[in-house]
Simulated assay, not measured.
Amino acid sequence: MALGGNPVFNGKTFRSATRGNQPAGTGTVTYAGDSTASRQQLEHLYNQPSAGPAQMGRMTFDDVIVKTLLCIGVVLLGAAVPAFVLPGLALPLMVVGALGGFVLGLVNAFKREPSPALILAYAALEGLFVGGITTVLEARFPGIAVQAVLGTLVVFGVTLALFKSGKVRATPKAMKFFMIAIISYAVFSLVNLGLMIFGVTEGMFGLRSTGIPGTEGMLGFAEGIPFGLVIGLLAIGLAAFSLIVDFTSISEGVRHGAPQRYSWTAAFGLTVTLIWLYVEILRLIAIIRGSE
């Protein structure tokens, strides 16, 4: 099974996960003689309930859920700063959050061991970015924040349901197409950003804001179907499949007994994907509403 997402989830990690993580009383009992005390101790040990994954220092679904909720909570706190505390500085805070989040995202992605402090710092910076871009777009398109949040929850719920049903899996073949598509999308995004910075393209979202030639009047768009509409739907699909990759990594980690500290890595991966999904849905709604 190709796991993608979290590189720490591999066979070597799983095989070594249970070593050095067993609590006292679960090892081999050695005693001398047939004394009453030693027999009583042995019976006591046998009558104890089996140690669960949490007691043995292994990752559990509960750990991942709690840490993911903590990360999302920090994102929301960060987003509240430009949205409610300093709305006049929404744009600069968005830039600071985007640059800082990008740097810490790379640091966390390439660290061999997860760092809770750096992961939460990443969540806070991404919160500034998310809050900033939401505030800017909300001023132009009232109600867009609620629409984007609902859209994100719907996509997340549907993706989780499909994963649990077994109908969608991160198979090796699917991962190949996913990697090709996501690299292509990343290249397009960088080129589009460069064109926007140097003023080559017009519109709020660069090439995404331009209409596709020959589609004038289709689907209700007077100037043609926005190119960003097609790219946005593709990006949302990629983000949804990235959730499948995250779910697969988490399931494999729990099944193989990955060390408990890697639940932070799983939470980081889910946070990254959910932020990406939200931003793509937010941008897609802005493109659609801007063409009305």
Score class of each variant (00 low, 15 high):
A2N: 13
G4W: 03
N6F: 05
G11H: 05
T13H: 06
A24C: 00
T26M: 00
G27V: 07
T28E: 10
T28R: 08
T30M: 09
T30Y: 09
Y31C: 07
T36Q: 14
A37D: 13
Y46A: 15
Q48H: 09
A51G: 06
M59D: 07
D63M: 09
K67T: 03
K67I: 04
T68M: 04
L76A: 15
G78D: 06
P82R: 05
V85E: 00
V85Y: 00
G88R: 05
L91T: 10
P92W: 08
L93W: 03
G100P: 07
G100L: 01
L104F: 14
L104W: 12
G105N: 12
L106K: 11
V107P: 01
V107L: 10
S115P: 04
S115I: 05
P116D: 14
I119K: 00
A121E: 07
A121M: 11
A123W: 01
A124S: 11
A124T: 07
I133K: 02
T135P: 00
L137F: 11
L137Y: 12
I144H: 14
I144N: 12
V146G: 06
V149M: 05
V149N: 01
V158R: 12
V158D: 08
A161Y: 10
L162G: 03
S165P: 00
T171N: 10
T171V: 08
P172I: 03
A174M: 13
A174D: 09
K176N: 09
M179W: 15
S184D: 03
A186R: 06
V191Y: 08
G194S: 12
R208G: 14
G214T: 08
T215D: 08
F221P: 02
I225M: 04
I225K: 05
L233G: 15
L234Y: 03
A235T: 14
G237F: 06
A240G: 14
S242M: 07
I244W: 01
D246E: 13
E252Y: 13
R255N: 14
Q260F: 00
R261H: 07
Y262V: 02
T265H: 01
T265A: 09
L270H: 02
T271W: 00
V272C: 12
T273S: 15
L274F: 06
W276E: 06
L277T: 04
E280H: 10
I281A: 04
I281H: 04
R283P: 05
I285C: 04
G290H: 06
E292F: 11
E292V: 08
